[in-house]
């Protein structure tokens, strides 16, 4: 029962952290857009946090450059369990348009486990919100 309550709280108020791993800024700005008045994800309790230690969900954008790869692993390790990673945008999913560049890892799932993918270049804020809701339902039950 306690576990159910914990899951309910996590689902209702996910704290997000955003990590740019070499993205072009398109997805990053759409994520911030999802939190500002037009879409206002904060009314559902989703708050963007600065520190990985406070976050339940990490939104990763970008194709993961070689320079940022060790940092991504470390930041992911700093997040407390249970944690979820959502790959936002085509490059975070597969490398997207940058596939073939010599200094990228072709997607977040080559470095850390990913719970959900949101496609689009960049995905619209509605799609990001939908992706976050789907991932939370899958992780913490409907």
């Amino acid at each position: 029962m306690l576990e159910g309550l914990k899951n309910l709280c996590r689902k209702k108020s996910p704290w997000l952290m955003h990590f740019n791993t070499g993205s072009c800024n398109g997805c990053d700005i759409e994520i911030i857009d999802a939190l500002t008045p037009r879409y206002d994800a904060e009314r559902f309790g989703a708050v963007l946090k600065g520190s990985p230690r406070h976050a339940d969900v990490m939104l990763v954008t970008g194709p993961v450059t070689k320079q940022v790869k060790p940092r991504l692993k470390r930041v992911h390790a700093q997040m407390p369990e249970p944690k979820a990673v959502i790959a936002v945008g085509n490059c975070a999913a597969t490398g997207g348009v940058f596939k073939g560049c010599y200094s990228i890892e072709n997607g977040v799932d080559n470095v850390i486990p990913v719970a959900a993918y949101v496609h689009g270049c960049p995905p619209k804020p509605e799609a990001i919100l939908f992706g976050a809701v789907t991932a939370l339902n899958a992780l913490f039950g409907d």
């Binding site: 740019n20 070499g22 450059t65 940058f98 200094s103």
Partner: peptide, 21 residues
């Protein structure tokens, strides 16, 4: 930290593809 190597990739693409990149 954002270095992706786009100028190198652009050499392998046609003009319209480079526009997309």
């Amino acid at each position: 930290y954002n270095h992706r190597g786009m100028e190198r990739l652009a050499e392998e693409k046609t003009y319209p593809q480079v526009l997309v990149l």
